[in-house]
Amino acid sequence: TEHYTFHTEEQAQRAAKKFKKQGLPVTIHEKNGKFTLQVN
């Protein structure tokens, strides 16, 4: 499991699309105004 932190939801969504294209499951969590992208 890898985690990436982004300052905006837009950045997180863009990164999520790249991972999803590779067939990886992705979840985004919002915490304290930051967005954490979790790749399993």
Score class of each variant (00 low, 15 high):
E10G: 06
K31V: 14
Q22W: 11
L37M: 06
N32C: 13
K20M: 14
E9S: 07
F6T: 01
Y4R: 05
Y4N: 05
G33D: 04
K34P: 00
A12H: 00
I28H: 00
A15S: 03
E30Q: 09
G23N: 05
L24I: 14
K21N: 11
K34V: 12
K21T: 09
L24H: 10
V39E: 02
V39H: 03
T1R: 10
V39S: 03
Y4G: 06
I28D: 01
T5K: 05
T5E: 10
Q22S: 07
K34N: 07
A15Q: 05
T27I: 10
T36Y: 15
A15H: 05
F6W: 03
P25W: 14
K17D: 14
K17Y: 08
T8W: 03
L37W: 02
H3R: 11
A12K: 00
H3I: 14
Y4S: 04
I28Y: 02
A15G: 03
N32V: 00
Q11Y: 04
I28P: 00
H29W: 11
K31M: 11
H29M: 12
R14E: 14
F6G: 01
A16T: 02
N40F: 11
E9D: 05
G33M: 01
L24V: 11
T27Q: 09
Q11D: 13
R14D: 09
H3W: 15
T36Q: 11
E9T: 05
E30Y: 13
T8M: 03
V39W: 08
P25R: 15
L24D: 03
V39G: 02
K21F: 07
F35W: 15
T1M: 11
K20I: 15
I28E: 00
Q38G: 05
K21M: 12
T27A: 07
H7P: 12
Q13G: 04
T8E: 04
T1I: 12
Q22Y: 10
L24K: 06
T5A: 07
A15L: 06
V26R: 00
F35Y: 11
F6N: 00
R14P: 00
N40E: 12
Q13D: 04
V26D: 00
K20H: 09
A16D: 01
H3G: 09
H29Y: 13
K31A: 11
K21C: 12
L37G: 02
E30I: 08
Q11H: 06
K34A: 07
F19Y: 08
K21V: 09
K20V: 12
K17C: 14
E9K: 14
E9P: 05
N40L: 13
A16G: 03
I28K: 00
Q22F: 10
Q22R: 12
N40W: 12
E2M: 13
H29V: 14
F35K: 02
N40Y: 10
Q13A: 08
G33V: 00
P25T: 15
K21R: 10
T36N: 06
E9N: 07
T5L: 10
P25Y: 15
Q38W: 12
A15T: 04
T27M: 07
R14Q: 12
K34F: 11
V26G: 02
F6H: 02
L24R: 07
K20A: 13
K17Q: 12
H7S: 12
K17P: 01
Q22P: 02
A12E: 00
T5G: 05
N32R: 03
R14A: 13
A15R: 03
E30G: 06
Q38Y: 14
K34D: 06
E10D: 07
V26K: 00
Q38D: 08
Q11C: 12
G23C: 05
L37P: 02
A12D: 00
T36F: 14
Q13K: 11
F35A: 03
Q13T: 08
K17L: 11
L37T: 02
F19G: 01
T36C: 15
R14C: 07
F35P: 02
K18W: 15
Y4F: 09
H29R: 09
K21P: 02
G33S: 02
N32A: 05
T27Y: 08
T36M: 12
F19W: 07
H3F: 14
A12V: 05
H7M: 11
F19L: 10
K20R: 14
P25N: 15
